[in-house]
Simulated assay, not measured.
Amino acid sequence: MHTIIHKADSRGHANHGWLNSFHTFSFANYYDPERIHFGVLRVLNDDTVAPGMGFGKHPHDNMEIISIPLYGDLEHEDSMGNKTVIREGDVQSMTAGTGVFHSEYNKNKDKEVKFLQIWILPKKRNVTPSYDQISMALEERHNKLQQIVSPNADDEGVTINQDAWFHITKLDKDRELTYALKGQDTGVYAFVLEGSVSINNTDLGRRDGLGISETDTLEIKAITDAQVLLMEVPMRLPSVNG
């Protein structure tokens, strides 16, 4: 088993006034050659956007982009004709493929919006762009693993163009869960949203990250009431010609 720990206070940080962003991996002006990616997980940004502010229209291509709201309402608009609002319990994915423009704004003028923006390198490049969004039942993650992302349209959660599976769990203190990896040559990046947990005997606090590969299972125990995001991703980078 191979592990890598990223403590919350070791992340990159940029405060632009309207945007307060913490970067687990190298992003924009934050660069650490030891923190470029975990397998195909390329970006994990923990963003807070001020009331009424947001990201203007900008392009992406050949990237799987997943947004997970934690608080407030995030308005999304893209060149595929989608205009939606996502909030806690929703999950959004966008396959940028051959190219797409989108914008993201805090819909509210009186409160912040907090969300995770996650980028995954795609399994196949230059595919037709697509969009997916789903509302998840929050009670289905209480002391259980709730799948929110998968590569299969028939499975629970949004679909992305990569052999990756995301789960969220909200655990009561002292509760334990086992996560069995689904893929081949995959690893799991665990990100603690709230509280503190022990994963395979490694203690983690709020916003700490732990990457684990070369194992078949994760043993998770809540030290306090806690919420954890698990991102299982291929560890081998895709071919640029894929």
Rank of each mutant, 00 (worst) to 15 (best):
Tyr105Gly: 13
Met63Gly: 07
Asn161Cys: 01
Gly81Ile: 11
Asp132Lys: 07
Ile66Arg: 00
Val233Gly: 05
Ala164Glu: 01
Gly17Trp: 04
Ile86His: 04
Phe101Lys: 11
Asp73Glu: 13
Thr159Asp: 00
Arg207Met: 09
Leu70Arg: 12
Tyr189Val: 06
Glu104Asp: 08
Met235Asp: 04
Asp110Lys: 14
Met80Asn: 13
Tyr131Cys: 10
Gly195Tyr: 14
Lys182Phe: 09
Ile65Pro: 00
Leu19Met: 12
Thr186Met: 02
Leu121Ser: 14
Arg175Tyr: 15
Ile160His: 00
Gly56Thr: 10
Ser67Asn: 03
Asn108Arg: 15
Ser135Gln: 13
Asn161Lys: 02
Gly195Glu: 11
Arg236Trp: 02
Asp61Gln: 07
Gln184Ile: 14
Asp208Glu: 07
Gln227Ile: 05
Leu230Gln: 07
Gly12Asp: 03
Leu210Asn: 11
Asp32Cys: 11
Pro33Phe: 05
Ala153Met: 05
Val113Gln: 10
Gly205His: 02
Val113Cys: 08
Ser198Glu: 14
Pro234Cys: 06
Thr98Gln: 15
Trp18Ala: 09
Gly205Leu: 07
Phe191Leu: 08
Tyr131Met: 07
Gln146Glu: 15
Gly81Trp: 12
Pro129Glu: 08
Gly205Ile: 04
Asp172Glu: 11
Val233Ala: 06
Ile65Val: 06
Glu156Asp: 05
Lys170Ser: 08
Pro33Val: 08
Phe101Pro: 02
Met235Thr: 12
Leu237His: 10
Gln117Ser: 04
Asp154Asn: 09
Thr128Cys: 06
Arg35Glu: 04
Glu176Phe: 06
Asp47Trp: 04
Gly183Ile: 09
Asp46Phe: 05
Leu229Arg: 09
Phe25Asp: 02
Gly209Ile: 03
Leu74Glu: 08
Lys123Val: 06
Ala8Phe: 00
Met94Lys: 05
Val49Pro: 15
Gly81Met: 10
Asp225His: 08
Arg207Asp: 02
Ile5Thr: 13
Ile118Met: 12
